[in-house]
Design a protein around this nucleic acid. Structure first.
Lengths: 265, 265
DNA sequence: CGGGGTATTGAGCCCAATCAAACTATGTGG
DNA sequence: CCACATAGTTTGATTGGGCTCAATACCCCG
């Protein structure tokens, strides 16, 4: 199975064979295994390397002094654990694993060499960071405006599409190796309520969830109830790979209209 | 008054006189004015330049097909409007102005020249983008875990500190040229409820809001009720400028503890 | 086969939304 | 400089989505 990071970068920015080989080498040099429920990094750490996830799931999370905690992002194979290439100093959140898996470590020096002499790679990684930021914005939108049901639908759509990019879907199905409690933390719901939404989803035949396998029989339908527009994933520069025919239609057509800034909601 | 962008970058990464001069020039070459309630860019646009705000407020926002809308970020003087330096293609959200003000436009070529030959500048801008992403994460946390009252407190703390970085505070006061409706959109509340929270805040003497002037008599107190920890703003590499003595204490001390991954909430 | 983590169900409550109306600035044109 | 219009803020009454607490069922795994 191909390296998920390379596969993902490849999707949007064409990498030379040379670029690919170097990336492949950089991500296979120092690989470590991690178990379930470990912290890969903690708030306050200063990462000195780049850590792409090769397999398994992790999440960014943060907790308040009083114990309330939130999952801020899911990290899938091909994602970088570090908030980004080393310019930022202290971590402002933690990264914990959700499953066991494998993690690469690219030393700072190798990374700098790579981005310095291989602008395509640098650009691709840059872009990756920006997509992560776009996802974060979409989560903000979800939490602020979507209700519990829509939020869950939206999250499932996103995860499915992101998994598809790295080749981790089989037809309409994918692994969802995550407890309902974690999904709840990510959607800002309680476990109890998330469970209820999940049941509604099943009753509506929008989702089949059996064991750790998620099946989405009718993705466009699920996207519709989630008000999901895939543009924020920047899947590719025009068409193909998940950018469905309705993506364009989904876009809000509100360019400088008079109603651009109405009052309350 | 100094250029707010330079002032902000300067804060954390020491720029040479040469770097500063070039930045100064780049941001003063092509300056335009904007009015209140204009769209600076719309979802679907492909920005070809970098646009730092020199004065005035704007916001990133997004709306769902059914009209629900959210403010995803506030853009203050010194912030870059573009989601980031040009690698991403289509905008996945819009940017609208909240006040009148002035906007610089740095042509792509100038920008590339600047970042290419002036690594400190590139690094500083990089860092800026990462801080914006960290802010977005904190908003996710707020919307998911903080209640209405805390959310408002948290937002006011953040805005105040961010304004302070660019020198737009006078002692405990700053301008808050924003309607309650916008604050509501940013906190995921209705205008009505936001107003009620604001009154509670006033009653508790945590905030004085008169006209468009916000005064925070006791910032540490406000930060305490907001569960506000300034680390995510990455104000500086150790100490000074807002990194107060209690910042360290605020940090969650949860490194690889057994309770790192408890069940629900 | 027991046990801990996980999922499910039920009943009651509360925070924030909704609806509706009044009140207060802030303009703007006559 | 007033009168009207408009945007923004404030207040009250009511509703409801999602939370809480608590108990039960499930399922994987040692």
């Amino acid at each position: 199975m191909a390296n998920p990071l390379i596969r993902k970068l490849q999707q949007v920015i064409r990498l030379s064979a040379d670029d690919q080989r170097l990336l492949e080498q950089a991500t296979s040099e120092r690989v470590t295994r991690f178990g379930q429920r470990e912290d890969l990094m903690s708030e306050g750490d200063e990462p000195r390397e780049i850590h792409p996830i090769l397999s398994g799931w992790a999440c960014r999370y943060k907790q308040l002094e009083d114990g309330r905690r939130a999952v801020l992002a899911f990290l899938l194979p091909g994602d970088l654990c570090d908030p980004s290439p080393l310019v930022l100093g202290e971590m402002d959140h933690s990264v914990g694993t959700l499953t066991s898996g494998t993690l690469a470590a690219i030393p700072r020096a190798v990374f700098e060499e790579l981005t310095f002499h291989h602008p395509r790679v640098a650009q691709a990684l840059w872009r990756e960071a920006l997509v992560q930021a776009a996802i974060q914005r979409e989560w903000t939108l979800s939490l602020g405006q979507r209700n519990a049901y829509e939020r869950l639908c939206h999250l499932l759509c996103e995860l499915f599409l992101r998994l598809r990019i790295v080749g981790l879907t089989q037809g309409p199905s994918c692994e969802l190796p995550v407890t309902q409690a974690k999904l709840a933390e990510a959607t800002g719901l309680t476990g109890v309520h998330l469970n209820r939404m999940l049941q509604e989803l099943r009753a509506a035949n929008l989702v089949v969830l059996k064991g750790k396998t998620l099946t989405i029989p009718d993705l466009p339908a699920l996207m519709a109830v989630a008000l999901f527009s895939p543009n924020y994933l920047h899947l590719t520069r025009e068409g193909s790979a998940g950018e469905s025919h309705e993506a364009a239609a989904h876009r809000v057509s509100n360019h400088r209209s008079d109603s651009a800034h109405p009052g309350g909601r």
